[in-house]
Computed example of a mutant assay.
Amino acid sequence: MKRIETSYGVLEGATDLVYYKNGNLRSCKLEKYNAITTSIGFLVPQYGDMDTRTKLREAISFYDTGELKSIYLKEPVIVNTTVGTLKGEFITFYKQGTIHRLFPLYGQVSGYWSEEEEYQLAEKATFKIGELQVSNKMNSYCFYPSGHLKSLNLWSKEVVIVQLHKKNIAIRLGIAFYENGNIKSLEPYVPTKIKTPIGDIMAYSNEPIGIHGDTNSLILDEDGRIKGITTVSTAIRMNNDQGEEQVIAPHLVRSQLDIERWVISPITISFLENQVIIVDEHTTYRFNKDDFKWSTTQIGFEEIGHECGNCQGCKNCS
């Protein structure tokens, strides 16, 4: 164990020290009580004996220039944010000292501590951002350097109802925001029909990025117009003036984790001024919107050619 001097005070009982090439401390664990002064007040990092839900990771980490980067707390604390007071057990920071990400709980899911047990510990957070009222159990929050909420990540059992274009949409996993509070992107709970500049498309991803909620299947511009959409069940058809037709649709591929299973490879469509950009598994297609007559067709797994085989977390069949 060592006694380490930092910009935030002395760390007593430091172990498992990791340093940057410039000699500055990168991270460490702690065996003794320490209270450090931060931009959000006094914080006590993890120390001493671990219990069954404690993650085996550093208690505190720093940027290579010495600023606090993350802290895993001995006990959750209440933090003042732009959307109200929130609880945090693990917090990451920008170099300037403002909160980057905040995790209300940060337990280690394992054979000794289940996700359900962690979920039961979670508490509902109630706040309003823009026109959206939220009252749910949150997995994590992300903030802009300014302090405004950038995104929130929901527990898998949680659903938020969002009104979009006068239609209520059930949202799972993640919602991202612009700095003014307007919604930037959403992750639909089930395949949801959305009107787009080229027709109705079912917004949904079978493999959403549910870690932080920053990137989702349905993307909006700052005025609420559809900017991008991911689908696993809509085919896009284009016809030009010469009578030529092209169809781009989701299709099945072998799972990278299990070659005996098939998974749907979605397509993503983006709308940029007069351009339509479609991305499938291997190719990016760029079209001038006015050069084609567009139509969309909703398809099911049987039309793709095989059962999905990837039911976990997917609502497409139900």
Score class of each variant (00 low, 15 high):
residue 1 M to D: 01
residue 211 I to F: 14
residue 181 G to W: 01
residue 44 V to Q: 01
residue 210 G to I: 03
residue 83 V to D: 15
residue 121 L to V: 02
residue 147 G to N: 09
residue 284 T to H: 05
residue 224 G to D: 02
residue 119 Y to K: 12
residue 65 T to E: 15
residue 26 R to W: 12
residue 182 N to E: 14
residue 127 F to N: 12
residue 190 V to E: 15
residue 5 E to S: 02
residue 221 D to Y: 02
residue 39 S to P: 00
residue 295 S to A: 13
residue 119 Y to C: 11
residue 179 E to H: 12
residue 101 R to Q: 15
residue 187 E to S: 06
residue 164 L to R: 03
residue 140 S to K: 06
residue 38 T to G: 05
residue 70 S to F: 08
residue 306 H to F: 11
residue 240 N to Y: 13
residue 41 G to H: 05
residue 110 S to A: 13
residue 303 E to D: 15
residue 231 T to D: 03
residue 178 Y to E: 02
residue 309 G to F: 10
residue 2 K to W: 03
residue 207 E to P: 03
residue 207 E to W: 03
residue 154 L to Q: 01
residue 184 K to Q: 14
residue 115 E to I: 12
residue 99 I to Y: 11
residue 67 E to K: 03
residue 278 I to V: 10
residue 101 R to K: 05
residue 66 G to V: 05
residue 90 F to T: 00
residue 50 M to I: 08
residue 113 W to A: 08
residue 295 S to Q: 14
residue 37 T to Y: 07
residue 113 W to H: 11
residue 282 H to P: 11
residue 177 F to V: 06
residue 251 H to I: 06
residue 302 E to N: 13
residue 39 S to C: 04
residue 150 K to P: 00
residue 286 R to Y: 15
residue 265 S to R: 04
residue 157 K to T: 07
residue 80 N to S: 06
residue 110 S to K: 02
residue 82 T to R: 09
residue 257 L to D: 15
residue 182 N to L: 00
residue 95 K to R: 07
residue 169 I to G: 10
residue 51 D to Y: 06
residue 299 I to R: 05
residue 36 I to D: 13
residue 19 Y to S: 10
residue 63 Y to Q: 05
residue 276 V to D: 12
residue 158 E to F: 09
residue 237 R to D: 02
residue 255 S to H: 13
residue 41 G to Q: 08
residue 42 F to Q: 09
residue 255 S to V: 13
residue 152 L to N: 02
residue 44 V to E: 14
residue 210 G to Q: 09
residue 31 E to G: 05
residue 18 V to F: 09
residue 214 D to E: 13
residue 132 L to R: 00
residue 47 Y to E: 05
residue 1 M to I: 01
residue 249 A to H: 13
residue 34 N to A: 06
residue 293 K to E: 14
residue 182 N to S: 04
residue 187 E to W: 00
residue 199 G to S: 09
residue 185 S to P: 11
residue 52 T to G: 08
residue 31 E to V: 01
residue 139 N to R: 04
residue 16 D to A: 04
residue 64 D to F: 06
residue 51 D to S: 03
residue 307 E to A: 11
residue 139 N to P: 07
residue 118 E to W: 11
residue 262 W to S: 13
residue 312 Q to D: 12
residue 42 F to K: 00
residue 150 K to I: 05
residue 148 H to T: 03
residue 61 S to A: 06
residue 31 E to S: 10
